Simulated assay, not measured.
Amino acid sequence: MDFLDRHIADRVALAMSETGVGFGQIVARTGLSAASLGARVGAAAPFTAVDLVLVACALGRELADLLPGQGRGDSGAA
């Protein structure tokens, strides 16, 4: 897993925490399997573009919030 993948996984985990939307809710809202989402949030597998769009929608966030250098509170280092 490279730096970019880890950074995106961290951004998703932070967004989940900030919104209070739990793992099970994201699974239900996106149709991603629990194993797939777990691997991605745990940075064992990279998020695909489609995964990120689905997760952003499930969290009620903009896609840019999950990307380095694009969302809130990001230094832009990637």
Rank of each mutant, 00 (worst) to 15 (best):
G60D: 06
F3L: 14
G69M: 09
I8A: 02
Q25Y: 00
R72T: 08
L4A: 12
G69L: 11
R11K: 15
L66R: 08
V50R: 13
A49G: 06
G71S: 10
L37G: 00
A39I: 02
A78K: 10
E62K: 14
P46Q: 13
A58Q: 01
G42L: 11
A28E: 13
H7K: 15
G73H: 13
V21F: 00
A58E: 00
Q70R: 14
L66T: 08
T19C: 04
A56P: 09
V41F: 02
V53F: 09
H7T: 15
A34Y: 03
L54E: 06
I26L: 01
V41I: 15
A13H: 10
G22W: 01
V21L: 01
E62L: 09
G24V: 04
L59A: 01
L54D: 06
R61A: 03
A58V: 02
A78F: 07
T30W: 02
R29V: 00
A44S: 15
A15L: 07
G71P: 06
A64S: 12
S75M: 08
L63E: 07
D65V: 06
A56K: 10
V50S: 12
E62G: 05
G60R: 09
R72D: 04
Q25R: 13
D2Q: 10
S17A: 14
R11S: 04
A77N: 11
G73S: 12
R40W: 00
S36H: 12
L54A: 13
S75F: 08
L37R: 02
A64F: 04
S17M: 14
L63M: 08
P68N: 12
G73C: 07
H7M: 13
A45P: 02
D2E: 12
V12F: 04
F23W: 04
R29H: 05
L37E: 00
L67T: 06
P68W: 08
A43S: 15
G20D: 03
G20C: 04
D10M: 11
T30Y: 01
E62D: 15
R6S: 09
P68T: 08
A49D: 05
D2V: 07
R11W: 03
G76H: 11
A77Q: 13
L52E: 04
L14E: 15
I26N: 00
G31Y: 07
L32A: 00
L4G: 07
G73E: 14
I26V: 09
S36V: 07
D5Y: 06
L66P: 04
R40H: 05
M16P: 02
S17P: 02
G22L: 03
A77T: 11
G22P: 00
R72M: 03
V50G: 08
P68L: 07
G76R: 12
G76L: 10
M16K: 12
A34T: 07
V12C: 05
A35G: 13
A13T: 14
R40Q: 11
A49Y: 05
L67I: 11
G31K: 10
L59D: 00
L59T: 02
S17R: 15
A28H: 07
D51H: 14
L14A: 15
A13D: 10
E62I: 02
E62H: 12
A44F: 08
A45I: 05
I26F: 00
D5Q: 14
D65I: 05
V41C: 02
S36K: 08
A49I: 11
H7F: 09
A44R: 15
D2C: 08
V50Y: 10
A13I: 09
L66Y: 08
L52A: 06
L37K: 02
F3W: 10
L32W: 01
A9D: 04
V55W: 01
V53A: 12
